[in-house]
């Protein structure tokens, strides 16, 4: 057998797997987004509507706009809080010291937990009758003892953000520690001798040199925040009402609960747009030629 034929034969299984599990579903979902696509209506998966599903989302569905708003606020808050706090932690841990190795190991633990589990455990902790937080507040801040956290729209949203920030800080901290370690110590010391205060060193020397890593961290975290599903599903299931319903959750509900798979597919494809922008930015930063 010719080498040329052989090499294609060898990668063929992989290509088939990718096609069957990624490319075909992608194409199929795109096709579905242009159909009536209701599980309860026979033949509707082949009944084409043109752009009507998309138009419907934009014009007839306040719940879609609610999900967009929730997802946007959720993304901005979680990305902002996680990155800032991870940067702070990374700066504290980077200079070294006795406990650093141990702390780093413990740090990774929350990240080792599945997001669904994080959702379940936070729901437990905020349970108004036997939750950990309830017990804490009962002792420390009695007026907050009887607050039903997950029943209040704003508090429930805050709890979702908190659980996500808690789960993501460790990983981002580790990435940023790596980034900080790659900054030449010389440049920091040179700036100190040149007369810069710690704040100026941080602002003028550390941050600009950390910028590429920071950009990657922010983009990656944005992608993960945009597609958040499992944690919210387990923690609040989008509620109370639709106060914590993100786009992924909205798509899941419409597709799986209500059987409107065509409409759900079109919303999913709307979500692809910001994802592509972020993915493009990510690859630009990661594979930048410098």
């Amino acid at each position: 057998m010719r080498d040329n034929t052989l090499k294609y034969l060898l990668v063929l299984p992989a290509i088939l797997v990718v096609f069957a599990t990624a490319i075909w579903p992608l194409i199929e979902s795109l096709r579905l987004s242009f159909t009536v696509g209701r599980f309860s209506v026979p033949g509707s998966l082949e009944q084409y509507l043109g752009w009507e599903n998309f138009a419907w989302a934009f014009t007839q569905e306040p719940a879609f706009w609610n999900a967009v708003r929730v997802t946007a606020i959720y993304t901005v808050l979680t990305v902002g809080l996680t990155t800032t706090m991870a940067l702070g932690l990374a700066l504290l841990l980077a200079p070294g010291g006795k406990f650093r190795a141990g702390v780093q190991t413990i740090l990774i633990l929350p990240f080792a937990m599945s997001p669904a589990l994080i959702g379940v455990s936070f729901r437990f902790m905020f349970n108004p009758e036997f939750g950990l937080f309830d017990a804490f507040f009962g002792v420390l801040i009695p007026p907050l003892a009887d607050v039903s956290w997950l029943a209040d729209p704003i508090l429930a949203f805050a709890v979702c953000v908190m659980a996500d920030v808690w789960g993501w800080i460790p990983f981002l901290t580790l990435v940023l520690i790596g980034g900080l370690a790659s900054i030449p110590q010389d440049t920091i010391e040179a700036a100190q001798v040149d007369g810069a205060s710690n704040w100026r060193v941080f602002k003028d020397i550390t941050i600009p040199q950390l910028a590429p890593v920071l950009a990657v961290v922010i983009i990656l975290k944005s992608i993960f925040s945009l597609k958040t599903f499992d944690q919210i599903f387990m923690l609040t299931n989008g509620g109370p009402g639709t106060a914590t319903q993100t786009l992924s959750h909205y798509i899941y509900f419409n597709g799986m609960k209500y059987g409107q798979i065509g409409y759900a597919a079109s919303v999913a494809w709307l979500m692809v747009i910001p994802m592509i922008v972020l993915a493009y930015a990510y690859t630009k930063f990661v594979f930048r030629k410098d």
Binding site: P184, D186, T187, E189, A190, A191, V193, I205, Q209, A211
Partner: peptide, 13 residues
Amino acid sequence: VAMVFQNYGLYPH
């Protein structure tokens, strides 16, 4: 004081 470092310590950005 002003210092010149072995690896120069120039600010690359």
